[in-house]
Design a binder for these strands. Structure first.
Lengths: 228, 228, 228, 228
DNA sequence: AATGAATGAGCATTCATTCAT
DNA sequence: CATGAATGAATGCTCATTCAT
């Protein structure tokens, strides 16, 4: 079913453009990357880009999608072959991010530059982030225990959120201080924090303080149950 | 010594432009904010902006500086009046960030859009970040103990870095999922992680595992001493 | 093989722009001629000019080239049909310059305004000037005799240079004192000078004075051999 | 009567600005030299320049005048101390031009860029040129003989014009091919041509050909009498 | 006389996009 | 599907000049 002729050409164009656009946008941001830059870098004429992607925004959406796909691809392979510890998993994840930073960078770009853009893109980005969290949650599950299922879920939710925050923070650190930060070191810090948080939760559950506060605001979810 | 006449006018212009530029750039990013947008929003003519700031990049630098100043102002007042716990401090800091998000947002914009820009701005941004870390380190100091001064410093260095990463991550979370995240909740997670990390470090120091690894790579700083 | 449709349009645009630019630049100089003036005069939008010529400097280069082409075209037809005297030739050349003054004017503009511009343009201008001199040399050849070929070449080189200088001077005169100067008259002066110079050279060769000086500086070319 | 205080300052400003403007305009042309460039180079603020010179055009006029003054100063000293031959005089003049090229350059700039400018400037420039020619005529006088005074005048007029043309041409040559041209060599060519022209005129007067043509157009001055 | 600040028009150039072939 | 050309609005910035102090 391999495409031939014109169809095949169209596919090639798409891929060349996607690759060039991803690289350029990840490097310079969305607004600072012009269609003509992409056109030149990809060796494809502007009009053809429009034929393939409709608009600059459409191209950006496609770039985001393709970067997410690659990221998940890399993510899915983590620990598939060998079973491993929590620390090992977090370490691998950090390295996966460092090896494939475009996706996170593009998300950051989306949030800083395209807040008001096509809501479909923003929706898609959120969906992707949710997916990430779900996958992390799944991996974290074996390491968490709680009396009730509801509590366990709340704890897991918080922990996955914490992990995401840590990875985001790691990434920002590396962006802003690229010389000073080694992924390995930062990954160790992440592991330390997550393990510490788990231990802390266990401890607090053993001897719950301030039970009064637990009843307060019901709409501030999760951590009310777990963190304090 | 209050300025009058033309001098006074100049100061006013600077302030109007700085305010408008900060708001617009924080909202739309650097490239997507045109000088004419700023000019209109500030009610100041383009040429006057150039008189006051030399270039768009110069204006951005000034905006960054002014946002940093405001941020540090807010930061300095934290816990001045009342002594407080680590948890309290981290909580306050989180709220300070949430109340004055422009500074972090601008740093993020700097890293995504202006990587190749005027190196002086990048240097300035780093200086500001270093300053932030130093201030956090200072606050964290009372809660950390270690046998030698050298170790103590390494631990503090790592912890401050961890805290920064967590705040960066918090901020990114709020940017990307503004509806789902409450600062209070995220601040609790941060506190949990930092406290957990401290506890973890104490525990590991009490019964050090894997002493073999400790001797390994000497050039991967700090955490070799403390985190593992 | 005539172009049609869009291709044909492109060619038309180029020509309209070239004509307008040549006229305006020759009249007002390079810097004083704005792209928008050219755009309006040519009835072509600014962006289209950039499509066709890349930059203002590129447009200037094209203008220069086209003016040179026209000049050489006119030059080539001189004396093709009828054989003629030296005086006749110089006269015709002067009239060709007067009839097609843009080329010299543009060269002058190049030298006064664009000294630091794109070196390729300067190179091209020199090439054109060399070509002019070569062509004049060729025409002058029949009127010059000398004992050795080397001497003959030196004399011809000097004479062509002299002629060029005279024509440049003629042109400047006409630019600065347009009312006072008739081409015919100035052309007569040019012919007088060139013929006089030739006669002078013959005479000096017949009875060379100051032979001592002839041996002196070897690196001051040509005239050492011929003029003195 | 030396000026003091504010007056003295004003004079200094004028001079600094004149020097900077002359250098910059001679180098880049009129339009390409902005008031702010001049202001920076002179270390004088724009507003002060306007106080001293009224407008950019006014400044240009002043620059032209001052350059002319310097040129005539240099010119006046030629051959004052020692009497000398025609060849010597022409040589000295060429060197004076080469040593003080700003004036000619500015005239050229005037003619290419400011054709439509303030007519007073153009008038002034012509006056200066006439003055130059008169001075050259004066120097050439001893070398020219003619039966009637009227003829002598006509011949002198033509010769001075020829000399000016040659010097203009020399100058253009040096501007366009600065590497290839030595002043000395070009000056030799000029002398050769002028001497040749004189000789030619003598010869023709001795045996006048084509007396028919002499009666023709009365309004094409001078050379009708002398050159043919 | 000089200064800091402003002004408004204009600059060369690029933008995202569209069109006819 | 791709191409060369066009489009019109916008870009960052500079211009000559003026103003109040």
């Amino acid at each position: 079913m391999a495409k031939v002729g014109r169809h095949r050409e169209g596919e090639e164009t798409r891929e060349k453009v996607l690759a060039a656009a991803r690289r350029l946008i990840a490097e310079n941001g969305y607004s600072a990357t012009s269609m003509s830059m992409i056109s030149k870098a990809a060796g494809v004429q502007p009009a053809s880009i429009y034929w393939a992607f409709e608009s600059k925004e459409g191209l950006f959406a496609a770039v985001l999608e393709s970067a997410a796909e690659d990221f998940f691809q890399a993510n899915r392979q983590l620990g598939v072959s060998r079973p491993h510890s929590l620390r090992q998993y977090l370490n691998d994840l950090a390295e996966a991010i460092a090896a494939q930073p475009d996706f996170l960078r593009l998300l950051l770009i989306l949030s800083t530059e395209r807040k008001k853009g096509d809501p479909r893109i923003l929706k898609a980005a959120q969906r992707i982030r949710d997916q990430s969290r779900a996958s992390i949650e799944e991996r974290l599950a074996p390491f968490v225990t709680a009396p009730t299922e509801r509590e366990r879920k709340a704890v897991l939710h918080d922990l996955s959120r914490l992990a995401i925050m840590l990875f985001d923070g790691t990434f920002v650190s590396m962006e802003l201080e690229p010389t000073e930060s080694s992924i390995k070191h930062l990954a160790q810090l992440v592991a330390l924090a997550v393990e510490g948080a788990i231990a802390q939760l266990e401890k607090e559950k053993a001897s719950p303080q301030k039970p009064a506060k637990q009843k307060k605001k019901r709409n501030e979810r999760a951590t009310e149950d777990s963190a304090v």
